Simulated assay, not measured.
Amino acid sequence: MKFTATYEGQTFTRTSKTREYTHVAIIRHPETGEPVDARWSQSESNAAKRLPHGWEANRLAVVPCFPEGQEPEPVVEAVEEPEADAEEPIPAEVLEADVDAVVVVQDGPAKFDVWRNREIVGVVFDESAANLARGSHAAWSPRGDRKGHVGFFGSLELAVDAIAALYGPMYHVGQELEFTPSPERTHGTLIPAGRVVVTRVVDHGELAQYHPGGRYTYVVQVPNVPRATQGAGESELARVVEPVKVEVDMTERASGIVHFPNHQALLGRGERAGWWYVEDPYSDVMHTAHGKGKRAAVEAMAAHLGYGRVEVKFLEEWRDR
């Protein structure tokens, strides 16, 4: 009768007229290193006995054997494919947004995901709790610099605008903005500075390098005055946002404390007549802003901190008592 055994895909056979083998000891050949059959036995315990001639040191395993034709069907184990990382569902407000619209979704106490066309195009971290001397909102995007950094900004809205600008026009038709004509304009303006509405966006494409206003020109008009239209570049437009309120407490005749929303700075009189300065002694890298007049100095520091427009209010002036 012919018996067969299998070890790691290799089949071993032996023929016997009188014995019925049940197990075989497999060793590694000392010269070739290949598995070979060393002892055919009629029980598992006999196959497990110590092998002679130094073969024991090369023992690999004891495997069962079967009469030819009676081998069991190979058991095919189901290979569990690793589960793919479950994709997070797209927020409903993103699914309902118009094409190219930018949607901001909060994804944590101080993290905001910026979506466009159902993809996350950037992330903004609100770091205002740290009272840093720079802008309180850090913006990151795959289209930022080589490290993905976009910049630091004084508000979530400004940070989102900076990310959105990397993926297309910063503003869209129907958006209400603030128009401030650039002093570098080579031609005049048709409408005054103030509130405007975008009526058309012109993409200059490859010709943008020849256009001083950038790749996109925004055709804007005075609200409810269709004939009062004007082409404007991105640098001449800004979102309509409420100014940041800044209070100045004049603790002395020539000094005071400036209260920004999440930060404090010191106001002092400069050495030159009429000039004042605001310095930030609470940050790792101290910055000093100068301006002709107290208000100008405060606004200069606000610009450095990334607050944009500010409404400066001076509390009761210090008086000699």
Results as ranks from 00 to 15, higher is better:
Glu127Leu: 15
Ser128Glu: 12
Ser128Cys: 12
Ala129Trp: 11
Ala130Asp: 12
Asn131Ile: 06
Leu132Thr: 12
Leu132Ala: 10
Ala133His: 15
Ala133Gln: 10
Arg134His: 13
Gly135Arg: 03
Ser136Trp: 06
Ala138Ser: 13
Ala138Thr: 14
Ala138Asp: 13
Ala138Gly: 01
Ser141Val: 03
Pro142Ala: 03
Arg143Tyr: 06
Arg143Asp: 08
Gly144Trp: 02
Asp145Trp: 01
Asp145Lys: 07
Asp145Pro: 02
Lys147Phe: 12
His149Ser: 10
Val150Leu: 01
Val150Gly: 04
Gly151Trp: 02
Phe152Ala: 05
Phe153Leu: 04
Phe153Trp: 05
Phe153Ala: 03
Phe153His: 13
Gly154Ile: 06
Gly154Met: 03
Gly154Arg: 00
Ser155Ala: 02
Ser155Trp: 02
Ser155Leu: 00
Leu156His: 05
Leu156Arg: 12
Glu157Cys: 00
Glu157His: 03
Leu158Pro: 00
Ala159Thr: 04
Ala159Tyr: 00
Ala159Ile: 01
Val160Arg: 04
Val160Leu: 02
Asp161Gly: 06
Asp161Tyr: 01
Ala162Asn: 10
Ala162His: 09
Ala162Tyr: 10
Ile163Glu: 01
Ala165Asp: 14
Tyr167Asn: 13
Tyr167Val: 06
Gly168Asp: 05
Gly168Ser: 08
Gly168Gln: 09
Pro169Leu: 09
Pro169Gly: 05
Tyr171Asp: 08
Tyr171Arg: 10
Gly174Met: 09
Gly174Thr: 09
Gln175Leu: 06
Leu177Gly: 09
Glu178Ser: 14
Glu178Val: 15
Thr180His: 11
Thr180Trp: 05
Pro183Thr: 07
Pro183Gly: 14
Glu184Ser: 14
His187Val: 08
His187Thr: 13
Ile191Phe: 08
Ala193Cys: 07
Ala193Gly: 14
Gly194Lys: 11
Arg195Phe: 05
Thr199Trp: 06
Thr199Cys: 07
Val201Ala: 11
